[in-house]
Amino acid sequence: MRIQVDVNEALQDYVASISLREPDVLRDLRVKTSELPLSLMQISPEQGQFISLLVKAIGAKKALEVGVFTGYSLLATALALPEGGSVTALDISEEWTAIARDFAERAGVSDKVDLRIGDARASLDALLLEEGAAGSFDFVFIDADKENYWAYYEAALTLLRPGGLVVVDNVLWHGAVLDETKQDSETTALREFNAKVRDDKRVELSVLPFADGLTFALKR
Rank of each mutant, 00 (worst) to 15 (best):
R2Q: 15
V5M: 11
V5W: 05
A10G: 10
L11H: 12
L11F: 11
Y14D: 10
A16S: 12
A16W: 06
S19M: 01
S19C: 03
L20C: 09
E22F: 11
V25G: 06
L29T: 03
T33R: 00
T33Q: 06
S34T: 05
S34K: 02
E35Y: 12
P37Q: 03
P37K: 01
S39M: 12
S39W: 13
M41D: 07
S44V: 04
G48V: 12
Q49F: 10
I51Q: 02
S52E: 11
A57Q: 15
A60L: 07
L64Q: 14
T70D: 08
S73H: 04
L74C: 15
L75E: 08
A76C: 14
A76E: 08
T77L: 01
L79I: 10
E83H: 06
G84Y: 03
G85F: 08
G85S: 00
S86F: 14
E95R: 07
T97Y: 08
A98P: 04
A100Y: 04
R101H: 15
F103Q: 10
A104K: 09
E105I: 15
R106S: 07
V109Q: 02
S110H: 14
D111E: 14
K112E: 08
K112R: 15
G118L: 07
D119N: 00
A120Q: 06
A122F: 10
A126F: 08
L128F: 06
E130T: 00
E131C: 11
G132L: 03
A134N: 13
D138C: 02
F139R: 14
F141T: 02
D143M: 05
A144S: 02
D145W: 05
K146T: 02
E147D: 06
Y149Q: 12
Y149T: 09
Y149H: 00
Y153F: 05
Y153N: 05
Y153H: 09
Y153M: 10
E154H: 00
L157Y: 07
L159N: 11
L159M: 13
G163P: 00
V166I: 05
V168Q: 06
D169W: 02
D169A: 03
D169R: 02
N170R: 01
H174P: 03
G175D: 02
G175Y: 07
G175N: 03
G175L: 08
T181E: 04
T181R: 09
K182P: 01
T188L: 10
T188S: 13
A189G: 01
L190C: 06
F193M: 00
N194R: 03
A195K: 15
D199E: 08
D199F: 07
D200F: 06
K201M: 14
K201S: 10
V203F: 07
V203N: 04
A211Y: 04
D212T: 04
R220I: 12
